[in-house]
Amino acid sequence: MPVIEIANLVKRYGELTAVNGVSLEINEGEVFALLGPNGAGKSTVVEILEGHRDRTSGDVSVLGLDPGKAGAEYRDQIGIVLQSSGIEDELSVLEALDVYGASYSTRRDPMEVLELVGLADRAQDRVSQLSGGQQRRIDLALGIIGTPKVLFLDEPTTGFDPSARRQSWELIDGLRDLGTTILLTTHYMDEAQHLADRVGVIVGGEIAVIGTPAELMDATGDTVVRFQVPHGANTDGLRPLGAVVEGIAVSCRTATPTKTLHELTSWALAQGVELFDLTVSRPSLEDVYLQLAVSDAQPSPAPDMPETRGQQ
C-alpha cells in the first residue's frame, strides 16, 4: 500500500522550474533513496512532502493527508531531518531532545535515542560544543524522537565519519525493521545501495530512472573490467580497446567481457606489464548514476560538497 503518493508534481521558483512533473509511489515500510546532482530538485520534492513548501501543481499525499494543508496531526506522524537547519546552541543535547520531543504523542525516551545515534556520552554537553558531524547526529535524533511512521532524511549522513555512517545505516535498517517508511536523499552511492529498497535518480527536476539498485545495475547488462598499470607504462594501446585511463587506473566497460579480457591481457603480455588489482564486475550504482547525471550536462556531482546557499 503506498504511503507516499506523488502525481505530476511541479514546482516553480519564479522562472525556474525546479521540479517538472515528478510521479512516484512509495510503499509502507519501504526505504526509497532519491539521488541526483546538486540542484536537481531533491530537497524541493522532500520539503513539499514535509509540508515546508507549497507546490505549483500536482497531487501529493502522505499517510492519506495532503502535506500542504496538514497540521499537527500530520507532523505528529512524520520525522524530518532537513538538509541544513540550526538548533538552539545554548541547550544541552539532552535538553534539545526533551524540548523538541515534548509535542509528539509517541515520543521515545531521549537517552535511548541518543544511544541509537551514538551521542549518549555527550548528553550533558552544549549543542555548540559538538563537532559538525556530531551536530548532524542530533538532527537525526530529533528526526526519530517522535517515533515517526514516515521519516524524511535529506542527506542525513553528510559530514559523518565512516564509522558514524555505518552506525546510522544500522539505525535506518532498524527503523525499516520496525516498519517505518523512509524517503532519503543522498550523494553517497554506497549508502543508497546499502539502504534503499528502491532508488530514483532525479535530474533537472525529472525522474530519469527508477528501480531497485539491482535492477539499475543490471539494466545495461554491461560488465566493467578494472585494473591498474605500473607508473610510466605506455597506455596508448588501451584507448582503442575502449578503456578509460585515469592515471594508473584503467576501467573498461563492455558487453563482451570474454573478448575484452582477452584483448587486454594480450596487450599486457605484449607490453610486458602486469595488470594489478584486476577485477571483473558489473557496473556499480555509481557507474550507472554517473552515466545518467553527467549526460545531462550538469556539472558532475560532488559528493562532499552538499548544497550551500552560494549555489542558488
Partner: peptide
C-alpha cells in the same frame, strides 16, 4: 536569528502548534 538559523523551520516541522 532563530529564523535565519533554520531553528524556526525545525520547529515548524514538529507537531507543536505555531501559536504555542
Amino acid at each position: 536569528i532563530l529564523r535565519d538559523e533554520g531553528i524556526l523551520k525545525r520547529w515548524r516541522g514538529t507537531p507543536l502548534p505555531p501559536s504555542v
